[in-house]
């Protein structure tokens, strides 16, 4: 209903202001205060993580800077070295604020790296399927469907059970767990684009498949891929934290946020909540802000849902 009225308004009203698609996208994105705030929070988190070595009072993994005397101090306590531990300290005397920023570096690296790699691989496989068509496409899509019938967390868990601990192995496990989502997204676009008349026309004119894939399918699947990418990256970060918390993800030598939370777990029942809770809040802000941005991106980029 409302679609019709908007179209009418455009066709008969005054000429629309000329806007590039990007400007329009930007304007629509920032229309949502929640999404704008979420983007701001995520930006701040990334900035803090990148700048960690320059804005933290200690390097929590330099043993010379950590003192066991500072162990399990509540938030606001003064450290042995004189600075204030605003978020308290963990079991081995690390300043939690510093530990969290350093932990974010690892968590974000793992999440973003696996997100980007999975996107590239999934997209490549999806495009190959679309390009090849026929049997190859059928087989690839079968595999994709099959994998998607298992929850990603279970696939990731299987992979770490098989691969073992370590940053590289976790990234690999996450890529394996998530590539299929991207391949499916490309495939969905391919199906739509192929059905469109202009592609049919192009095929009749003998224009190569290569062109169809790169001129029609690739540009059109970018927007949905970005949306899927944001949501999957958030889920990768959360998945890594989960695996690390369970003790099957990153080792103690690579203390991501999940590892920090796991370390604090044993102190929780005795009331020293902060060791787990503050890293948890950091994780939460990261994941939720990415998801809110992704949610809104979906609304803005998906013309079908537009009001």
């Amino acid at each position: 209903m409302s679609d019709v009225t908007t179209d009418n308004a455009l066709s008969a009203g005054e000429p629309p202001v000329v806007e590039t698609p990007f400007q329009r996208f930007r304007a629509e994105f920032f229309e949502s205060r929640i999404a704008t705030a979420a983007l701001g929070v995520f930006g701040a988190i990334v900035l803090l993580a990148v700048l960690a070595p320059w804005i933290t009072p200690q390097n929590p993994y330099d043993l010379a800077q950590v003192s066991v005397m500072d162990g399990r101090l509540p938030p606001g306590s003064e450290a042995f070295d004189g600075y204030t531990m605003w978020l308290g300290s963990d079991g081995s005397g690390r300043d939690l604020y510093s530990a969290i920023l350093y932990g974010l570096r690892i968590s974000l690296t793992v999440g973003l790296a696996s997100g980007v790699i999975a996107l590239l691989i999934g997209m490549a496989i999806g495009l190959v399927a679309a390009y090849a068509g026929g049997r190859i496409e059928a087989i690839i899509m079968r595999i994709v469907d099959l994998q998607l019938s298992f929850p990603a967390s279970l696939v990731a868990l299987m992979m770490v059970a098989a691969l073992g601990k370590g940053v590289d192995k976790i990234i690999l496990a996450l890529v394996i767990a998530q590539w299929a989502y991207y391949a499916r997204t490309v495939r969905a676009t391919a199906l739509v684009e192929r059905g469109k008349e202009y592609v049919e026309a192009a095929q009749c004119l003998g224009i190569s498949r290569f062109r169809i894939v790169f001129r029609h399918i690739l540009p059109n699947c970018m927007a949905p891929l970005i949306v899927v990418g944001t949501v999957q990256t958030a889920s990768a970060i959360s998945l890594e934290a989960t695996l690390s918390f369970l003790g099957v993800g990153l080792p103690q030598t690579e203390p991501s946020i999940g590892v920090l939370i796991a370390n604090g777990f044993e102190y929780m029942l005795s009331g020293r909540y902060w060791i787990s809770v503050f890293p948890g809040v950091a994780l939460l802000l990261t994941v939720v802000s990415i998801n809110l941005v992704g949610d809104h991106l979906r609304d803005v980029l998906n013309p079908r849902l537009k009001k």
């Binding site: 934290a241 989960t242 939460l284």
Partner: peptide
Amino acid sequence: FSLPTFWVGLM
């Protein structure tokens, strides 16, 4: 949807 299960469990 976005909160990790284990974190909610802890809470």
